[in-house]
Nucleic acid binder design. Sequence first.
DNA 1: TGCAAATTATTTGTATGCAAATAATATTTG
DNA 2: CAAATATTATTTGCATACAAATAATTTGCA
Lengths: 166, 166
Amino acid sequence: MNTLRIEYEYQKNWLTKYTKKVNGLVLEIFDSVCILLAKAEQKHFQFTKKMLDERGLGITPGQMIILYTLYKQDGESITELGKRCFLDNSTLTGLIDRLERLQLLSRVAVPGDRRAYSIYLTDAGRAIREQVTEVMESVAQTMLAGCSDDEIAIFEKVLRNIFDKL
Amino acid sequence: MNTLRIEYEYQKNWLTKYTKKVNGLVLEIFDSVCILLAKAEQKHFQFTKKMLDERGLGITPGQMIILYTLYKQDGESITELGKRCFLDNSTLTGLIDRLERLQLLSRVAVPGDRRAYSIYLTDAGRAIREQVTEVMESVAQTMLAGCSDDEIAIFEKVLRNIFDKL
DNA sequence: TGCAAATTATTTGTATGCAAATAATATTTG
DNA sequence: CAAATATTATTTGCATACAAATAATTTGCA
């Protein structure tokens, strides 16, 4: 008896609705929506890193988000920037260090407050805007290929709900 | 003219369907579904960490996933475990170190292959199974509160699609 | 059999992320 | 005005993650 039997069992509880079973045993961890969310984002992060690399942009996914936030509005303090991209100051220090080293942004002293800096995009930072957004567009298209507009709308709604509820 | 005007504009492109505008400017970065996914997971991770902490389980979200994977099946090699929880060996080394230090699992030498270890849950590791799954259930319920069964089913389907496509 | 290639796990280096502690500067309050 | 408090950014420590390099061992092939 060395058969491989694969079933999908309907779940009534908090587990994802259809659970994969191999020879009667659930081995796959995606029966938890928590793990499914974490692993989808893990793949998404790695894929974005690869795309940025292939495009030769020389930036990482985290740096991309900072740039995207600055494209909406730059010249704010590190704390204000952190509020818009939902990152702690201690995380931003390193990210801004690396982006400054790449000469994509610069810390500018704030007149009247010697503790603070304003973060401004440089010309080089502004110059890669189209390429950065193109990568994000491309990643979104790839990962959502095969999903209908309605499904995508619901997906976004649930993500937004998760962000707001937690 | 110092009014605060907030609108939501319908988008036809790759951006999320409804985009928040403040005085005509899009400042919010959630008009990108990529960022929305990343930030929802970021919140999810932090919330899970907090829950595990409050429950006094003494483990982290990453360790929780390893335990969940082992509850499905233990006694496998590190490489095999990594395939089921989608983690690199180099990531697992540290996670397993910490879980072994907590005496929740143990590395057992494999007879016939002196390179490999089998990873087994300890009694203590098995003892917290209910509490670990309860935390995951609780996180899922909190983050999906207010979503219908249909919406959740679609959400899971899209996450699965993302994982498979990337 | 003996050497090349593959496998297994670890180490090192880099990039997120947060918490807590720190240092410098501003603000508030008595 | 001076001391207490708050704010701003950084540093340090810890926890994920992967890539690339390493070490030990096993497998495959000639």
